[in-house]
Amino acid sequence: MAFSDWQAFIHMGGYGLYVWSAFALSFLILALLTCYTLWTQRRLKRLATQLQQRQQRLAKRRQQEVNTP
């Protein structure tokens, strides 16, 4: 352990602001990218559901057209 207590660990020998902001920004970027990727996955699920619904509607209409004449 390079630090005597929590205070010193946060303080980082006077460089606390720099060290912690660097770490915070890096994790923010990684977190944003991860969230965006997960959000894309959810959007894809929605897209697939929409596609399926449209296909079902089309199928139903085609069935009706077959039945009516």
Binding site: A2, F9, G13, G14, Y18, V19
Partner: peptide, 16 residues
């Protein structure tokens, strides 16, 4: 961040 020793020139800023 916590266990590596501090640098003798750059102090703790090198941890970046």
């Amino acid at each position: 961040l916590a266990f590596a020793p501090a640098d003798y020139q750059q102090g703790d800023s090198y941890r970046i």
